[in-house]
Simulated scan of single mutants.
Amino acid sequence: MTVADVRGLGSLDQRSGLTVLPVPAAPDEPRLPRARRYLMCPPEYFEVAYAINPWMNLGVVVDRAEAMRQWQELRRTYERLGHTVEVITPEPGLPDMVFAANSGTVVDGRVLGARFRAPERAAEAEHYRRWFGENGFRDVVMPACTNEAEGDFTWTGSVLLAGTGFRTDPAAHGEAQEVLGVPVVSLRLVDPRYYHLDVALFVLAEGGPGRSPLVAYLPDAFSPGSRRVLARLFPDAVLATEQDAACLGLNAVSDGRHVVLPLEATGLADQVAARGFEPVFVDVSELRKSGGGPKCCTMELRA
């Protein structure tokens, strides 16, 4: 579904073939996309077979064919935007393996694997570790501490934001710093609905020399101290509403210009468009039955 389908407005980007929201005001600097490399896993065995987060309901019926259609459209969206998508083979009995973001954190070619808190997902980590080994990644470390990878680790281009409170152990933050060799800032999550950092915050534009990163987040998902840290680090952040967070609008993926987010997150889309980004809507209604959105399905492979 396109932006125009959702909002009754928008125009066709001839380069990408995607319908995007118009930019209402020019930002201080142009928003430049950067080609990314992603790892994804088809939802071939996707179902709600257990309940390990507030989004999961054992009574819900999953339309696996529709989940696959939505996943394929997400993949095609990335490819139309100029990104490379690698695919790992799904394994029977691992219905949440589709959520690739939870199984590895890659910065500068170094890989920190995952160690899941829920035993139902534990086996996923080994399948992803093997994929890294078979696809040219030589610096791969499996963690001693529980961490759910990009579910709780978010790279800003200068520091790694690290969530804790529900899944990832605080000690995993220090381990990530040692393995990945980047500075880590710890943030405490306090709302059970937003048990992973990637459903409470995402990076719109990475920082670099002379350039600060820009993020969007839901303040109420964080402890008072963490809110102060975020306000200090990102004074110009986009502050999401509860309505947009509740449809997993913050489980979004940005390439520095295009922001791929759930089609229900129209308020958040307006905010990021006002900052010079181009929102691109995708339907993730089936995948959301397990608490997943675009980012959950997407691990970034940073060379």
Rank of each mutant, 00 (worst) to 15 (best):
V48Y: 11
A274V: 01
A205V: 07
P209G: 11
G207D: 06
P213H: 09
F46K: 09
E134I: 06
P33F: 02
P27I: 04
G292M: 00
S226A: 12
A200T: 07
R211S: 15
S223I: 02
V179W: 02
V229L: 15
F137M: 00
E278T: 12
V282C: 08
P143H: 09
R275F: 06
S223P: 03
V85D: 06
R64Y: 03
G249L: 11
K295Y: 10
L204M: 07
P33E: 08
A144Y: 07
F132H: 02
L204E: 08
V238P: 00
G151M: 08
V185L: 12
W155F: 02
V203A: 11
F116K: 12
L18A: 04
A237E: 13
Y128P: 05
S223A: 10
V61K: 13
P262Q: 07
P30M: 08
S11V: 06
V61E: 10
R31F: 03
E178Q: 03
G174K: 03
D270V: 04
R110C: 09
A269D: 04
W131P: 00
L94D: 06
E175V: 07
L160S: 02
A245W: 10
L287V: 14
D220M: 12
R36C: 05
G291P: 04
G293T: 07
R121W: 05
T19Q: 14
